[in-house]
Write a protein that binds this DNA or RNA. Structure first.
Length: 565
RNA sequence: CGGGGUGUAGCGCAGUUGGCUAGCGCGCAGCGUUUGGGACGCUGAGGUCGGAGGUUCAAGUCCUCUCACCCCGACCA
């Protein structure tokens, strides 16, 4: 490919809208162009990278026994109503009307469609296990697209759906996918860490995410260096060290004028925050929930949402709290009535807590569960954080940030039951198919690769996904020898099956070198009068500083070596 | 949806208390001179100043409404 003909120009200045490295470099390199919030065109260079990532994914999916298919983008809303997941996705699902006023959605994912499809085509255990996958554009009306290709509304996703006869078989399919995913990331030059995850709107039981550890990532990961425990903070657990025991003492009312926050109350009464109980208020699907947790801990809203089995959860407003007759700052589960109380299990791990008294400027000492109050639900709803102790080995937990580049779920049978995907087992009994699903955001993988493979000059593509292997840079184009040598090398290398980006522009060396660096082509071949004097050219790896001089005759062979390593 | 911000040429920006044909740098086109890490000179093209309404002799500038985009939070591959 000649750069003079390449669609998509590099820019000298970084577009102002971007503040994430991958976003900046993609725009600056002329690889993507935004059409609307979270909606991008992929220009030829980015598209080539994307196709390479897709090819790696296809190989690994096929290798694991997957069969590729293609499904509709437009899906009847009724299909989603059958599984109830229209509610789980809520406004994230874009609903359209056709000319007959029939409601269709732009598919945010394809479990419903594929399950329905499978229900018509699978009747027997002999048809299982079955692995189907797609590489398609999906649309989710994200509330806030951001960071270029990392969080978009329209995106290309590989989704594989597994169909098994039972849980054991599902476990095998799941493991097979985990291995395939590890292969994919390794081949893409993208180190990805497996972490436990919450299944969110997709639903299901077990779930794991693959995280590319990057400071700018939007997810927080809690992990343990000694035993390898790692989980998304949404899911992560930690040991809630019990506070000193002792005998429950009688409840005692104390005056705490003007003290409302945990720090103030604890400081005033000279107790640790972990000896207090705090109350926070959430609205779950429109209903107020009174949430109780030990004072030193924070509520994990994802866990809370799961416990409450609600689809929408938010903090209550001051007005809502007031309206419910709650005294903010001194709220207490003691004596509360008519509101659902959800307690973190941490409140069962100590005695003689300080809690609110439901009276202004007043708190209670020596509050004990369940002597003094009860909860409608007691569960782990606390947010694990760095410094807490590991739930499996008790070492100190650490925290890191990451980009979610893959997410796998054991779905179970809830979709197959609702959509009638049953099979007949060996003994003639009809059973629901056990499902799993396994997604990778291809554009996000591309962006994550850049996040982890760049320097101050630009992108440093791993060879496996680079848009081209070689950037051929002739300098001093008015010199006929240079042009002749470049043209002939270009033809020779392409004929040898190498992917060459030929900088045939009449630009100064600085411009060519800077563009080659920005575009991140792994190998740069420089041809100039100076190198031709020695019948040689210069070969430089993008990832290294110094070039090597290679004789023109040996160039193709040398490059082949470098590419095939 | 809540909070913050920005809309002026393809990109980055300036534009004073409202005042004349709306500027600068980069990029783009032509010519010439240069050039091993983003060269220089000359010439030139490119704008309904996000949109609508209003105030005014006069609006990029003031007022009202609106739209888009970015950032921080609630959602996810």
């Amino acid at each position: 490919m000649r750069i003079s003909k390449l669609f998509g120009k590099t820019q000298r200045e970084t577009p102002a809208e971007a503040d994430t490295v991958s976003h900046q470099l993609l725009l600056k390199a002329g690889m993507i162009s935004q059409l609307a919030a979270g909606v991008y065109s992929y220009l030829p260079l980015a598209w080539r990278v994307l196709k390479k990532i897709e090819a790696i994914i296809r190989e690994e999916m096929d290798g694991a026994g997957g069969q590729e298919l293609n499904m509709p983008v437009l899906q009847p809303l009724e299909l989603w109503q059958q599984t109830g997941r229209d509610k789980a996705f809520g406004k994230g699902m874009l609903v359209l009307s056709d000319r007959k006023e029939r409601k269709l959605v732009l598919g945010p994912t394809h479990e419903e469609v594929v399950t329905s499809l499978v229900s018509h085509n699978v009747q027997s255990y002999r048809d299982l296990p079955l692995l189907l996958y797609q590489l398609q554009t999906k649309f989710r009306d994200e509330p806030r697209p951001r960071a270029g290709l990392i969080r978009v509304r329209e995106f290309i996703m590989k989704d594989l759906y597994s169909f098994d006869a039972d849980d054991d078989s599902l476990a095998q399919s799941y493991d097979k996918m985990l291995q395939a995913y590890r292969n994919i990331y390794a081949r893409c030059g993208l180190p990805a860490t497996l972490v436990e995850a919450d299944s969110g709107a997709i639903g299901g039981k077990d779930s794991h995410e693959f995280m590319a550890l990057v400071e700018s990532g939007e997810d927080e990961i809690i992990y343990c260096n000694s035993c390898g425990y790692a989980a998304n903070v949404e899911k992560a657990q930690s040991i809630k060290d019990g506070v000193a025991g002792g005998k429950p003492l009688p409840v005692e009312e104390v005056s705490t004028p003007g003290k409302t926050s945990i720090e103030e109350v604890a400081g005033f009464l000279k107790v640790l925050p972990s000896h207090t109980i705090k109350a926070v208020f959430h609205v779950a699907d429109g209903k107020l929930a009174f949430v109780v947790i030990r004072g030193d801990l924070e509520v994990n809203e994802v866990k809370l949402k799961n416990v409450l089995r609600c689809t929408e959860l938010r903090m209550a407003t001051e007005a809502e709290v007031k309206e419910a007759g709650i005294v903010a700052g001194s709220a207490s589960p003691v004596g509360i009535k008519g509101i659902k109380v959800v307690a973190d299990d941490s409140i069962t791990t100590g005695v003689n807590f300080v809690a609110g008294a439901n009276k202004p400027d007043t708190h209670l000492r020596n509050v004990n569960y369940p002597r003094d109050f009860t909860a409608d639900m007691v569960a782990d709803i606390a947010r694990a954080s760095a410094g807490h102790r590991c739930p499996t080995c008790e070492s100190k937990l650490l925290s890191a940030r990451g980009i979610e580049v893959g997410h796998v779920f054991k779905l179970g049978t809830f979709l197959s039951e609702k959509l009638g995907a049953f099979y007949v087992d060996a003994s003639g009994v009809s059973r629901p198919i056990v499902m799993g699903c396994y997604g990778i955001g291809v554009g996000r993988v591309l962006a994550a690769i850049i996040e982890l493979n760049h320097d101050n000059k630009g992108i440093v593509w791993p060879l496996s996904v680079a848009p081209y292997h070689i950037c051929l840079c002739p300098l001093f184009m008015e010199n006929p020898k240079v042009v002749a040598a470049a043209e002939s090398l270009h033809d020779e290398l392409e004929a040898a099956g190498m992917e060459v980006l030929f900088d045939d522009r009449d630009e100064s060396p600085g411009v060519k070198f800077n563009d080659a660096d920005l575009l991140g082509i792994p190998l740069r071949v420089t041809i100039s009068p100076r190198t031709l004097e020695k019948s040689s050219v210069e070969v430089k790896r993008r990832s290294e500083k110094s070039p090597e001089l290679v004789p023109v005759e040996g160039l193709a062979a040398r490059l082949k070596e470098l590419i095939e390593v």
